[in-house]
Design a protein around this nucleic acid. Structure first.
Length: 593
DNA sequence: GTGAACCGGGG
DNA sequence: GTGTACGGTTCAC
């Protein structure tokens, strides 16, 4: 099956992992929920005093303790792996353990349970996963309200990742229109008048309380029926992905509020569960179990550099085609006017949903690849900043080599770090005037190259070293061992090697589709490699290091200045430079000198 | 100059 | 949920 999503539920005192998947069976996609009751939460405890620590730990309400060998900045270390009965025991007990006299430090105490599971089992969402067990009808499985078509496995063995093709997923886009004559829509007063649907399998539908000649309009009696019909379409289409534009904070929030007032159940999940909202800081993320809800606004904002991100602007940027638009504050008038105006409103509404489908087809492959590389759920990856992606990638890589993950900085540690910022890139003030014959020298891969060639890493940074065995950074003179390869440099090295391999394959690719797929994959790797520098420079990151960040930018400034000097000898006069590149004008007459 | 407050997308 | 965005700009002093 394709692994779409993961979470856990509590049965009695135990946490049960649920893997949500899909597979094609005779042309129709089936939803699967696989249960794993055999995984326990744990943290690492680095003792001061091994014996005393073991004695003290035994006093606590924990499941079991193991003494295991791990690595700390590449050096072997013996640590306790302390297992708990339930993930919710961890926050309570970890502080107690951290405060014990016999304990030096606790580690990996804040990794969400389902993420820990994916890493430890070597599973990658959006990849093919093999599970072992027999199918139980949803109705025979207590505690689950799933449809009969949903198959529930209780796993008997660990699941396995299979080498996989790019999964063909069913995607449903949606968009709502509201009747809001007074300013922005208020869910307590303004009804939903349309819900538009569009899928990558040919569905085009507007559900509304208004009549229409258009065959794509499905007219129902009440707003209540709009919502009920929406739910039944989702169940019938059974999409793997649901996408919207600003749907985390607008469409789904609004639908949820109206459905609550009208007592319409929003049981959209493949397990029969209702639409849920997760607080993510000050904003929401809308969650449908077993289907991945993606808010394209967040994805687009991350990958496209624009000054505004309205649906119209994004559509224009991606396709160069203007989209029909009715200003938000005029929609109620088009509705009231009826006739041709109402026709336009129907078209506009459907076009919005179809624009979401088009934007999704363009933007989601990259997110899909990042999901398969980073190995965290698509839902999370679609909402993660690139820095977070890099961190979760590194956490998985650290696990693979038994390296302990550094802790997140405390609030005070974070503010100390903020206080002393690493020096930035080199900036040359622009030469005033209108320039012609401009060339741009691209340095975007400079930082990853520096990290690799200078072996810039926490585990290679030393106070002193023998003559010739270290790289010495310009200005501050930080020392990095030339051998062995550091953790982050080797991770970046592997990413870039893999990227080169894919680019070679791309050149040999027989058909267009294959080449496009390889291109997205190598783009995802490039993105990851180029974001890697951030792990040293961003204060709230686990692998933060002022010395590493500082050394990288110092080498960067050194390189860019040297390159500019060299360019000048060839007749290129630099007119502006900032961090990762510089602009120059070509002056032919200067070449003779 | 500094830190607090505000803002995005959506109708 | 082993949780609490984010980064940029403007405002107020």
């Amino acid at each position: 099956m394709v692994l779409l999503d993961i979470d856990y539920v509590t049965e009695g005192e135990k946490a049960v992992i649920r893997l949500f998947g899909t597979y094609d069976s005779a042309g129709t996609s089936k939803s699967i929920i696989a249960l794993d009751r055999g995984f326990l939460p744990y943290i690492y405890v680095i003792p001061h005093d091994t014996k005393a620590c073991q004695e003290e730990l035994k006093e606590l309400e924990i499941e079991k303790i193991e003494l295991v060998k791990r690595k700390e900045l590449g050096k072997p270390i013996d640590v306790f792996k302390v297992f708990f009965k339930h993930p919710q025991d961890v926050p309570r007990l970890r502080d107690q353990i951290g405060d014990m006299n016999s304990v030096y430090e606790i580690r990996e105490y804040d990794l969400p349970f389902y993420r820990r599971y994916l890493i430890d089992k070597g599973l990658f969402p959006m990849g093919q996963v093999e599970i072992h067990g027999k199918c139980i009808l949803a109705s025979d499985y207590r505690g689950c309200k799933a449809d009969e078509e949903t198959c529930i496995f209780v796993m008997e063995q660990d699941p396995h990742l299979l080498e996989s093709e790019f999964p063909e997923l069913k995607i449903l886009s949606f968009d709502i229109e509201t009747y809001n004559p007074k300013g922005m829509p208020r869910a307590e007063e303004d009804p939903i008048i349309m819900i538009s649907l569009s899928s990558n399998h040919g569905l085009r539908k507007v559900i509304s309380t208004a009549q229409s000649e258009f065959d794509f309009v499905k007219t129902v009696a009440t707003e209540e029926d709009i919502l009920k019909t929406f739910v039944s379409y989702v169940k019938k289409e059974n999409p793997n992905l649901i996408i919207g534009y600003n749907s985390d904070n607008f469409d789904f929030t609004y639908i949820n509020e109206r459905a609550k007032r009208l007592s319409v159940p929003l049981d959209l999940g493949t397990d029969g569960s209702s639409l849920k909202f997760m607080r993510r800081g000050f904003t929401n993320a809308a969650l449908v179990k077993g289907r991945v809800h993606v808010d394209l606004y967040l994805v687009v904002r991350r990958y496209l550099q624009m000054d505004r991100y309205t649906l119209e602007r994004v559509h224009w940027e991606l396709f160069g085609v203007d989209k029909e638009d009715i200003p938000g504050d005029k929609i109620f008038k088009y509705w009231d006017d009826g006739g041709e105006k109402l026709d336009l409103l129907f078209k506009y509404s459907l076009d919005d949903a179809e624009a979401v489908t088009r934007i999704g087809e363009k933007m989601l492959p990259l997110t899909m690849e990042l999901t398969r590389i980073v190995g965290q759920p698509f839902f999370d990856v679609a909402r993660m900043a690139t820095g977070q992606l890099v961190e979760w990638y590194l956490i998985r890589k650290a696990f693979e080599i038994d390296e302990l993950v550094p802790n997140k900085p405390s609030a005070s540690e974070n503010s100390t770090r903020r206080g002393k910022r690493a020096s930035g890139g080199y900036v040359k003030d622009p030469v005033k005037g209108l320039h012609e014959n401009i060339v741009y020298f691209d340095f975007r891969s400079l930082y990853p190259s520096i990290i690799i060639s200078k072996n810039v890493s926490l585990d290679t940074l030393v106070e002193e070293c023998e003559e010739g065995s270290c790289h010495v950074s310009p200005e501050a003179g930080h020392l990095f061992l030339k051998e062995p390869a550091g953790f982050v440099p080797s991770v970046i090295g592997n990413i870039l090697n893999e990227r080169m391999r894919l680019k070679t394959l791309m050149g040999k690719a027989s058909d267009e589709r294959e080449a496009q797929l390889l291109n997205v994959q190598q783009e995802a790797l490039k993105r990851l490699a180029n974001s890697m520098y951030g792990v040293y420079g961003f204060s709230r990151f686990r692998w933060y290091s002022l010395e590493c960040a500082d050394a990288i930018t110092a080498w960067g400034r050194d390189y860019i200045k040297k390159t500019m000097k060299r360019a000048e000898k060839f007749g290129f006069k630099p007119i502006y430079a900032d961090t990762d590149g510089f602009y120059a004008v070509y002056e032919e007459n200067k070449l003779q000198n």
